[in-house]
C-alpha cells in the first residue's frame, strides 16, 4: 500500500499566488523520502495540505488509503507532523504538551501518560518533563515536537526542516533516531535545506520547484546521473603550481589545498597514481559540494 498519494494537487492562495500546480506524488509504505526544493517552491504548502493545515484548491490526497475529502479523520490518525516553526504552547510543561496531543488523538489519559513517558525518554527529554516549554533550548524544542508527533504511533511521520538550527551532535542523534524509526516500519517524509541530510537519510527524493515536481527518483539512480565530482584535497607539502594530469582539471585553492574535477568515466585510482608520481602526498579529501547538492543545482538550473 502507498503511504501517500497525491494526484493533481493544486493550491492557489487568496492573493492569486499559485503555490502548487498539479503535483503527482507517490510514497510507498516504509520509505524514507525527501521532498526538496528552494524556498517558496511549495514544499510547506504540500505538507500543510496533507496535514489539514492548508485547504487545497483541487486534487486528491490519500494517506494509507484514507481519502482526505472522504475520511479526513483517518488521514489525521495516520500522520504525525513535525512542522518547521515551533507550534506548541510555550507556557505549558513539556509532559502536558505530549499528553494533550495524545488526548486529541483519542488516547485515554493513563495510556497517554505512559506513551508520553516513553517518547520523552527516547528523545532525552524526560528530565525536562515538568519544565515550561519556553525554557527548552532550540534542539530540545525540535525533539519535543518529534515526541508529540509520535505519541499516537502514526505510520507516516512528516518532518518539515527537522534539524534547522540544531547543532551537529543533536542533528546526528536525531538522524539515528529517525533511521531507527524507519527501520521499525514508520514511513518518513522530510523536507530539508541540508542536502547532505537528505543524501544520508533518504532512499528516494522528489524535487519541487515553482509548484511542480521536477524530479522524482531513487537516490542511487539520481546520484549516478552526476557527470562529475569536485574533490578538495589537503596536502602535506605546499604546492606552487598544480600538476598537469591528462583529462582532469586541477587548481590550487591555496598552497596546501588542491581542487580536482573528476569525470564519472575517470577513476580515482588514476588520480592518486598521478599525484604520487608527482610527489604529492594527500592528507585528506572531501567533496566540494555534497553530490546531491550538485545534482540539485543542476536540476533547478535546467528547470529554470
Amino acid at each position: 500500500m502507498d503511504a501517500l498519494e497525491l494526484q493533481d494537487l493544486r493550491k492557489t492562495y487568496r492573493g492569486g499566488h499559485e503555490a502548487l500546480k498539479g503535483i503527482e506524488l507517490c510514497v510507498p509504505e516504509g520509505e524514507f523520502f525527501a521532498l526538496l526544493g528552494p524556498n517558496g517552491a511549495g514544499k510547506s504548502t504540500a505538507i500543510g495540505i496533507i496535514a489539514s493545515l492548508v485547504t487545497k484548491t483541487s486534487g486528491r490526497v490519500r494517506v494509507f488509503g484514507h481519502d482526505l475529502d472522504r475520511d479526513p479523520m483517518g488521514v489525521r490518525r495516520a500522520i504525525g507532523l513535525v512542522p518547521q516553526e515551533f507550534n506548541f504552547n510555550q507556557f505549558e510543561p513539556v509532559e502536558e504538551i505530549v499528553i494533550n496531543q495524545a488526548g486529541f488523538q483519542g488516547i485515554p489519559r493513563r495510556e497517554a501518560r505512559a506513551r508520553a513517558e516513553s517518547e520523552l525518554r527516547q528523545l532525552d527529554l524526560w528530565d525536562k518533563r515538568r519544565v515550561s516549554a519556553r525554557e527548552l533550548s532550540g534542539g530540545m524544542k525540535r525533539r519535543l515536537m518529534i515526541a508529540r508527533a509520535l505519541v499516537h504511533r502514526p505510520p507516516l511521520l512528516i518532518l518539515d526542516e527537522p534539524t534547522a538550527g540544531v547543532d551537529v551532535e543533536i542533528r546526528n542523534s536525531m538522524w539515528e533516531f529517525l533511521q531507527d524509526l524507519n527501520r521499525q516500519g514508520t514511513t518518513i517524509i522530510l523536507t530539508t535545506h541540508y542536502l547532505e541530510e537528505a543524501e544520508a537519510l533518504c532512499r528516494h527524493i522528489a524535487i519541487i520547484d515553482h509548484g511542480r515536481i521536477v524530479e522524482n527518483a531513487n537516490m542511487l539512480e539520481l546520484l549516478t546521473r552526476l557527470h562529475q565530482e569536485i574533490l578538495v584535497l589537503n596536502l602535506r607539502q605546499p604546492l606552487r603550481e598544480p600538476p598537469a594530469i591528462e583529462g582532469m582539471t586541477l587548481r590550487c585553492l591555496d598552497p596546501l589545498t588542491l581542487e580536482v574535477v573528476v569525470r564519472r568515466d575517470q577513476s580515482f585510482n588514476r588520480l592518486f597514481c598521478e599525484l604520487e608520481r608527482h610527489g604529492i602526498e594527500v592528507l585528506s579529501l572531501r567533496n566540494k559540494k555534497s553530490r546531491l547538492e550538485q545534482l540539485f543545482m543542476n536540476l533547478l538550473g535546467n528547470a529554470a
Binding site: P72, M73, G74, L81, Q101, F104, Q105
Partner: peptide, 8 residues
C-alpha cells in the same frame, strides 16, 4: 495546529 492536525 495541534488540534487541526488531530482527528478532532
Amino acid at each position: 495546529e495541534e488540534l487541526l492536525v488531530a482527528p478532532v
